Measured scan of single mutants.
Amino acid sequence: LQLFIKTLTGKTFTVEMEPSDTIENLKAKIQDKEGIPPDQQRLIFAGKQLEDGRTLSDYNIQKESTLHLVL
C-alpha cells in the first residue's frame, strides 16, 4: 500500500509498504529514501505516536493514508 509521509517543513514523499510491515520497517524505508536515522523519527497517525513493534494494520493504516514525520 502506498503511504504519504508529510514532514513539518511541508515536504511530502511516498513509500510503498505492506499492511503486515512494522513501524520499524517503515522507519527503515524512510531512512533509505530520506537518510533520516530511525531513532530520530517520530511518526504520528490520527493523533497517535506509532510504536516500532506494531504493524501498520494494528493502527488501521490504509492505502494512501498520510503519516506525519516529526524529527
Rank of each mutant, 00 (worst) to 15 (best):
S20V: 09
E51N: 06
L26G: 00
G53E: 08
L26A: 02
D21I: 03
N60V: 05
I23E: 00
R54I: 06
L56D: 00
R42S: 10
P19Q: 12
D32F: 12
Q40G: 06
L1D: 05
G10A: 05
K11M: 08
D39H: 15
I30E: 00
T9P: 06
M17Q: 03
I36F: 12
I61T: 03
A46K: 13
I5V: 09
I61A: 02
F13M: 06
Q31D: 06
T12F: 11
K6N: 07
Q40F: 09
D39E: 15
E51H: 12
S20G: 12
L26W: 00
E16H: 13
H68K: 05
N60W: 05
Q62C: 04
G35F: 05
F4C: 04
E64W: 12
H68G: 05
I44Y: 15
F4T: 14
T55I: 09
E34T: 12
M17R: 01
D52V: 07
V70G: 05
K6L: 10
Q41A: 04
L69F: 03
E64I: 06
L50Q: 00
L56V: 06
L1N: 05
P38N: 09
Q40E: 11
E16G: 07
P37D: 09
I30R: 00
I5E: 00
E34P: 01
L26Y: 00
I36G: 02
P37E: 07
T14C: 04
T22E: 02
A46E: 11
T66I: 12
K11G: 08
N60Q: 12
G35E: 04
K48T: 13
S20T: 13
H68N: 09
L1H: 07
A46L: 12
T22N: 05
P37R: 09
T12D: 07
L67V: 11
R54V: 06
L50I: 05
T12M: 09
T55Q: 11
A46D: 10
I30F: 01
Y59R: 01
D21Q: 10
K29A: 12
T12S: 09
Q41S: 04
L43D: 00
T9N: 15
D21V: 03
R54S: 07
A28H: 15
L8H: 15
P37N: 08
F45A: 03
L1Q: 05
T9V: 09
L1C: 03
V15E: 01
T55R: 13
T22R: 06
T66P: 03
F45T: 02
S65F: 07
V70S: 07
E24K: 13
L67K: 01
Q49F: 12
I23L: 05
N60S: 08
P19C: 04
I23S: 01
S57K: 14
V70T: 08
A46M: 14
D21Y: 03
P38R: 15
S57I: 09
M17I: 13
D52T: 07
F4I: 11
S20N: 14
L1F: 10
K48S: 07
L1Y: 11
M17N: 03
R54Y: 14
K33M: 15
D39Y: 15
Q62P: 12
F45K: 03
M17S: 08
F13W: 07
L3Y: 04
L8K: 15
L43S: 00
I44C: 05
F13L: 07
A46P: 01
P38Q: 15
I61W: 03
Q31M: 13
L26N: 00
G35N: 09
L69Q: 01
A28T: 13
Q2W: 14
K63H: 14
L56Q: 00
K48A: 10
R42N: 09
D52L: 06
E24C: 05
F13V: 06
N25R: 15
Q2C: 05
F45V: 04
N60C: 04
K29F: 08
V70N: 06
D52G: 08
T55Y: 08
Y59K: 01
K33Y: 09
K27I: 02
K11S: 09
E34Q: 10
L69T: 01
P19L: 13
N25H: 13
S20Q: 09
S57A: 12
F4H: 14
Q31R: 15
D21H: 07
Y59N: 02
T12V: 14
R42V: 14
D39S: 15
H68Y: 09
L56F: 08
K63A: 11
D52M: 06
E18V: 12
R54T: 07
T9C: 05
E34H: 09
T66Y: 08
I36N: 03
N60T: 05
K63E: 11
G47C: 04
T14R: 08
D21F: 04
P37M: 06
G35T: 03
L69R: 00
L3I: 14
K11I: 10
F13C: 02
A46Q: 12
T9K: 13
N25I: 14
D58K: 03
I61E: 03
K6T: 15
L1K: 04
M17P: 02
Y59F: 04
R42H: 14
K6G: 03
I5Y: 01
I44P: 00
I5S: 00
F45L: 06
K27T: 02
